[in-house]
Design a protein around this nucleic acid. Sequence first.
DNA 1: TTGGGTGTGTTCAGTATTGTTCAACTTGTT
DNA 2: AACAAGTTGAACAATACTGAACACACCCAA
Lengths: 364, 364
Amino acid sequence: MLPEDRKELILRELAMRGSLNAAEFAAKAGISGMTVRRDLATLADQGLLVRVHGGAVAAPENSPGPQRTASPSRPRRLPMATIGMVVPSASYYFPGVIRGAEAAAQEAGVRLVLGVSNYSVQEEQRQLRRLLDNGVDGILVTPSEVSLAGTDTLALLADAGVPVVVVERSIEDALDDGELESVRSDHGRGAEIAVNHLLQLGHRKVGLGIREGSPTGPPVTAGYHQALQRAGMPRDESLVHTVTRPRTGPEDHPGVVDRILDSFLAAGVTAAIIHSDEDALQFTSACLERRLRVPEDFAIVAYDDEIAALGAVPLSAVAPPKFDVGYQALQMCLNRIGGRRSGTGALRRVSLSPALVVRESSRS
Amino acid sequence: MLPEDRKELILRELAMRGSLNAAEFAAKAGISGMTVRRDLATLADQGLLVRVHGGAVAAPENSPGPQRTASPSRPRRLPMATIGMVVPSASYYFPGVIRGAEAAAQEAGVRLVLGVSNYSVQEEQRQLRRLLDNGVDGILVTPSEVSLAGTDTLALLADAGVPVVVVERSIEDALDDGELESVRSDHGRGAEIAVNHLLQLGHRKVGLGIREGSPTGPPVTAGYHQALQRAGMPRDESLVHTVTRPRTGPEDHPGVVDRILDSFLAAGVTAAIIHSDEDALQFTSACLERRLRVPEDFAIVAYDDEIAALGAVPLSAVAPPKFDVGYQALQMCLNRIGGRRSGTGALRRVSLSPALVVRESSRS
DNA sequence: TTGGGTGTGTTCAGTATTGTTCAACTTGTT
DNA sequence: AACAAGTTGAACAATACTGAACACACCCAA
């Protein structure tokens, strides 16, 4: 590598990250710390960066070269905006999404206002109206209902007058109404990844358990079937079970899980994907109680990764990109508010891929 | 090898990678280091590059020709990466995409290197390998084939070692192989928008003409059917025609268009979407020749918007977001290269919505 | 305030790169 | 064939760059 290249690399790192650790960079670039320090010294002389203990930070914008600009009015006031966010729940699933949106908001220096609809359509609309009346500059919303088509909420969003990003819901069927963008986890793909992982471990029959009533269920089921089909397996509906929620009380639940496990074992299933990692933990317990070893006798992948790591057997899990969904949603909204940097006026629909975290419950 | 060729090679290398190592280049070109150094000296005198210890770096943009800038503190270039882009054609459809990628590249101060595969799989792979061998930092690629599944190109991309963004192609079926992201125009949605527009104008029977062999055809057809179905219309395959390309010569083409128009009129169709605006213009001529008024007697929406505005009757057109596709693809690639600003590691799949441009041919 | 740990710059020896010089070679001309 | 002009590659001394050792400066926690 040329010395010049090295310096370029340093500046690039600095431009992208804002700061640079000398030792870290040396290791990454495979050069000695001394060389890095010398480069930093050179570049600092040219005013291209500012040395600090341990590395360097990017030079202030206003001094692209060796120069001394005495700018008394430093603090640049960012144009502050307020983004409203409405989610159905602040306890299940969405905390991750909210954290992502918060992170992006903080970075961009905008304010995020949250509303929770508790899966009530009325409440949802009330929250949205409140936000709009208060003059927010953009909206992130996860409607309670799975499909937006023809709902009052859609009508409300369609002429909100501000950019709207729909989060974790489809806008396929709402294309004429307003300028909606969307960001979603690609749960179908998440399921496919899990199935492929299990097939690769040699399992021939893979079961699926889906939590009752969850909007995540259908796409996961679809992805599951698709992955099996691609692998040339016959479609077998009997391997898909619904994990019903306890109605009479929590003590009912283990019974449901037990029956599903029975059914799996009877069908020769040796691995399963269980939606909601909470249920997956229950399921694991059921396996262990029957002296089934996990993963040797039965492999398990949880769908969702809130508490999957905490079981007696840490569970492999598909982790939906919740943080990223929130983060990207806010960025897209902001991008649409802010004066549309060059090109890029087209409405976006973004799918984010979940990631598989392999833990004990599905190791080879 | 001619001295001129050598210099040409040097400049190309420089344009491609931004820097050049003299010894390395000498070895690769099979010439002595001395000769390389002499060439570099000559080119540096002409201002075509800047010598540095160990080799040379590309000359700053603003000095394209021989000039003598006596400024010892040369204007430093921005931190820079090189992105390779491979498209099947540089004349049809992709110029818009390329422009978008170029714009984003310029904004970000990175270098964009283009390769054209001419729809040849071999050429495509050769181009990709060339780019990778030359050490690009990221790849934007539109594979020649519609589906990536199981192709050698996919294998190549899967372990490219740098971020890869697939442009205008699906990666649905390639999820296990490497970390691919994608950006595409949502042609299905484009067709839906066009259909809804025509239905809204009161048309009850809407025809569709699809250019033969285009990868855009299937999604457009699917969107067309879906929009009609949503509107409660019966599915009628007889309203969909393929616009075959002239085989014997250009004089054959009007005949094809004429027959399609015949068929439409016989079926009571009063509006049509014609894929490729070029064919749409032909189609419009055919209408006018028969004394059909456009749009009063027959409304037309072109799919694609290259020359739709230029007809005797300016055509309404669905404009795929080509520029945006290129722009976003490059940004996504860069984002993945750059040190992953907080959050946001999840792989993205982005659909961009086409826009309907209403002109004379479909006004109320 | 006082240590221990970490980061910094100096020095120096080793290595890589550079430009000079010159001989060998190619090409076109006499 | 002989020559001049231009190009190329090898040898080599001068120079630039690199990494290791080491003494010192800085930061942080007790």
